[in-house]
Amino acid sequence: MTLSKTYYPLATLYSITDANLAYCKMLLVARSGVEFNVDTTGLNEGGGNYCLYTPSTGTITFYDQQPFLDNESINIVYDTNP
């Protein structure tokens, strides 16, 4: 099932974890309006427009040197049955 969610993360953090995102297929991840490429290998954790998706925990991790600012939002479109 294809679903979408918007998260409003706490400033200073750089990842979101939601059990509903575990073992899903990420179709679209956008941070404050900017679309990000989704990586599951950890090879592109260094930044750029990449985020790391960890299926076992439902975590999306962004570059740790660019933590969330106030009023940022994360838009995610995902498929629960990959």
């Binding site: 979408s4 956008a30 309006g33 900017v34 679309e35 838009n75």
Partner: peptide, 13 residues
């Protein structure tokens, strides 16, 4: 609705 973008910027629906 799943996603909305305006001129390439993704909006919160």
């Amino acid at each position: 609705i799943l996603a909305i973008a305006r001129e390439g910027t993704v909006y919160d629906p």
